[in-house]
């Protein structure tokens, strides 16, 4: 018997299967705890549409040439994609750290890239799922065109990659549950509100218009809105430049941190 046994060699599909395993696990998690993952954004975003779109929006009149409801709808969809992509990765990966089952991945031969990409895919799928749901809710309040589908879909996809990566890095550094709320509360939420979801930055004084241009979320929201409505405060080529730069930087950072074992290996 013994002599016939062979030392295992690495199978070419290893990382593909490992990646798929993480994605499958993530999707099942999102659907299993749908009350925590899908329902809250549906409720919050419905409230945004009712309060800002309907009640207040009817007094605002038009913005950027569109009804206020139409103007804010893309921003609200993007906001839900961003928060849910981020939230999925940070809570799932930190949960794995906290529960110890991250070790199941660390002892395995799968590559660090597969670990990162698997979780990013999970975050993107959750973001897009929630985004689609919020879109359906939006459509029950107003009409939306889809002027440039390719821009719309590519921008929502790339933005959710950016925030999934950011959530991954947050999870690596987090030591306790409180740590996974710091970045969403102090960075993402303010930047989203200041990112032109509810207003066109052309309404701002010069200085604040200038300051807004350092906010990456402004680019994502505007490019996405451009894809749907055909109107934007910024040149959307910059938007692609910004999101792609963020993806490269954040992926590299995730990779280095994971390789060094920051926050996961003593």
């Amino acid at each position: 018997m013994t002599s016939q046994r062979k030392i295992h060699n690495v199978n070419v599909n290893l990382n593909l299967i490992a990646f798929y395993t993480i994605v499958r696990k993530e999707v099942i998690r999102v659907l299993r705890i749908w009350i925590q993952t899908i329902v809250p954004p549906a409720i919050t975003m419905t409230l945004y549409f009712v309060i800002f779109g309907n009640l207040i929006g009817s007094r605002v009149g038009t913005m950027g040439g569109y009804s206020y409801m139409q103007f804010i709808a893309p921003g609200i969809i993007m906001m839900s994609v961003i928060t849910n992509s981020y939230g999925n990765v940070v809570s799932s990966f930190f949960g794995a750290k906290f529960g110890g089952h991250i070790e199941e991945m660390l002892v395995s031969p799968m590559s660090n890239s597969a670990i990162i990409l698997g979780h990013i895919a999970g975050g993107v799928l959750r973001g897009l799922l929630v985004g689609a749901m919020v879109t359906i809710i939006a459509l029950s309040f107003t009409k939306l065109e889809l002027k440039y589908p390719l821009i719309t879909f590519s921008m929502v996809f790339l933005s959710s990659v950016v925030f999934s990566l950011a959530g991954f890095i947050n999870a690596l550094y987090a030591r306790k549950f409180d740590d996974i709320a710091i970045i969403p509360t102090f960075v993402i939420t303010p930047l989203t509100y200041l990112g032109g979801v509810f207003y066109s930055i052309s309404l701002l004084p010069d200085f604040w218009q200038y300051a807004s241009k350092f906010n990456p979320i402004l680019y994502m929201v505007n490019a996405f809105r451009y894809g749907i409505l055909g109107t934007s405060d910024i040149d959307i080529r910059y938007a692609y430049l910004v999101v792609c730069a963020f993806i490269v930087i954040l992926f590299t950072l995730s990779f280095i941190l994971l390789k060094r074992g920051v926050g996961i290996r003593d």
Binding site: N11, N15, Y20, K25, G100, H101, E103, E104, P109, M110
Partner: peptide, 24 residues
């Protein structure tokens, strides 16, 4: 120390672990 996801089932835990090793 126990280090599996205690909210998951034994079957899932095993099949996922196999997936991390590239097993179909």
């Amino acid at each position: 120390e126990v280090n599996f996801n205690t909210f998951d089932t034994p079957l899932n835990i095993l099949v996922n672990q196999a997936g991390f090793y590239g097993i179909k």
